[in-house]
Deep mutational scan, measured.
Amino acid sequence: QTVHVKGVQYHFPNPEEAVKFALKVAKDLGGRVEFHGDEIHVE
Results as ranks from 00 to 15, higher is better:
E43N: 12
I40N: 01
K6I: 07
H11A: 06
A18P: 00
H4T: 13
Q1Y: 15
E39R: 08
A18Y: 01
G31F: 11
K24W: 09
V3D: 00
V8C: 14
V33D: 01
K27N: 11
E34C: 15
F21E: 01
D38Y: 10
I40D: 01
E16H: 09
G37R: 07
Y10T: 03
Q9C: 14
F12V: 01
E17F: 06
Q9F: 10
H11L: 08
E17D: 12
H36G: 04
A22F: 03
P13A: 14
L23N: 12
F35D: 03
G37V: 05
E34M: 14
F35N: 03
E34P: 01
F21P: 01
F21L: 02
H41S: 06
L29C: 11
G7C: 07
K27D: 08
H4R: 11
V8A: 08
G7H: 06
K24R: 11
K24M: 12
H4A: 05
T2F: 08
T2G: 03
Y10V: 04
G37L: 07
I40H: 02
R32E: 05
G30D: 08
A18E: 01
H41M: 08
A22L: 03
L23P: 00
V3G: 01
Q1A: 14
R32F: 11
V5W: 09
E39A: 11
A18V: 00
H11T: 10
T2Q: 04
P15N: 12
N14K: 05
G7F: 04
K24E: 11
E17K: 05
Y10L: 04
D28L: 14
K24P: 00
A26K: 02
V8L: 10
D28I: 14
G7K: 04
Q9M: 13
K20F: 08
H36N: 08
N14V: 05
H41Y: 14
K6N: 15
T2L: 07
L29P: 01
L29I: 13
T2N: 06
F35I: 10
L29Q: 06
V33P: 02
G30W: 06
F35G: 02
V42H: 01
G30A: 07
V33L: 11
I40A: 02
P15Y: 15
K20C: 14
H41K: 07
K24S: 11
A18G: 04
R32K: 10
D28K: 13
E34Q: 11
D38L: 11
V8S: 06
Q1C: 15
V25L: 13
K6Q: 12
G31M: 14
G7A: 04
E16L: 10
V8R: 12
P13G: 10
P13D: 14
V42G: 01
L23I: 13
V19F: 14
E16A: 11
P15R: 15
A22H: 00
N14I: 06
H41Q: 04
H11V: 09
I40P: 02
E39N: 09
G31Y: 12
L23S: 07
F21D: 00
E39I: 11
V33E: 00
K6W: 13
